[in-house]
Amino acid sequence: MPAFLLLAATLAAAPADTAPIECGACAEWNQPQAPFRLHGDSWYVGTKGLSAVLVATPEGLVLIDGALPQSAPLIAANVAALGFDLRDVRFLLNSHAHFDHAGGLAALQRLSGAPVLTTSAGARAMRRGATTHDDPQAGFGDKANGYPPIAVIQVIEDGGSVSVGDVVFRMHASPGHTPGGTTWTWRSCEGGDCRDLVYADSLTAVSAPGFRFSDDPPRVAEFRATIARVAALPCDLVVSAHPGFSGLFDKLAEREADPSRNALLDPKACQAYAQAGEDWLARRLAEEAAATPGD
């Protein structure tokens, strides 16, 4: 049986973990996107609005992020279109435990058998299949925030790493957008040209109604430390959890217009991405201050 037919049959046999989540942006986020090479053996395999990255090594594959539950078939199809087999995935990595980035992990775990690596805070959310009470978006409720829970999780500590073949994936804890967010870095080589790649967690100060970041100064300080940390990473190419926030497809269009250079490579990309996160947080704090009744 052709690989794509086998994949379709497998997904059809266990549809519960790919049942669509409905949200205002979900249909737009989940538009199909053809896979493309980032650099070396690192590939974009996500949708138009939700990133997922596959890294291939001779010793196996690593897949970062699962997008929505209904994104899992699209990600799996992109992996197969590149000639890879999901059963060769050794680890599933995650940016943060929200339904639009962790929602597809249960299905991808079923298809691959690979464990999900995350922080202890991320693991608490993934095991319950919804945000934890200390997440800024928890106020939306478990029904709105819910997604298929993850069965097999390995907790990794800040600064920890995992290796597949000669590729080392290092985790940088990125609390702020969520309590358990992570940013991942690795090096990818192409014809002797080795580059530092970054899969960056979301740096947006987004919350449910009624939540105020300014009511928790330590959380704000932690968020700003995360932003500074991302800005300081060795970074030749960045993919953000939402690709639009790092201008990924604009850069891809530049590369396609001028194939003589890889416009995805930008040594200032992490700094720009982090500055956008700092600007967002500053605006949010200013809005909260303006909404606070005067003394």
Results as ranks from 00 to 15, higher is better:
Ala80His: 01
Pro218Ser: 14
Ser188Phe: 02
Arg127Val: 01
His177Ile: 08
Arg255Gln: 15
Thr182Cys: 06
Arg284Phe: 05
Leu264Thr: 08
Thr10Tyr: 05
Cys194Val: 13
Cys26Ile: 11
Leu265Cys: 04
Glu222Met: 15
Val55Trp: 03
Leu86Ile: 00
Ala151Asp: 14
Gly141Ile: 14
Leu93Glu: 02
Ala173Leu: 10
Asp17Arg: 02
Asp166Lys: 13
Ala274Asn: 02
Asp216Val: 10
Gly294Ser: 15
His98Ser: 07
Pro58Trp: 09
Cys270Asp: 00
Leu248Ser: 06
Ser174Pro: 03
Thr182Pro: 02
Pro243His: 05
Leu203Glu: 00
Pro293Lys: 12
Pro69Asp: 00
Ala221Ile: 09
Gly141Cys: 14
Arg170Trp: 00
Arg170Ile: 08
Glu59Gly: 10
Glu22Lys: 13
Leu281Cys: 02
Asp201Met: 14
Thr185Asn: 01
Asp88Thr: 13
Val89Tyr: 04
Leu50Trp: 03
Ala106His: 07
Leu252Asp: 03
Tyr147Trp: 12
Pro73Met: 03
Ser246Gln: 01
Gly146Asn: 05
Leu105Lys: 02
Arg255Trp: 12
Phe4Asp: 15
Leu63Cys: 03
Trp280Asp: 15
Leu197Gly: 03
Asp65Gln: 15
Asp142Phe: 03
Thr226Tyr: 01
Asp201Lys: 05
Trp43His: 12
Ala173Asp: 11
Leu7Pro: 10
Arg283Gln: 14
Leu86Gln: 00
Leu237Arg: 05
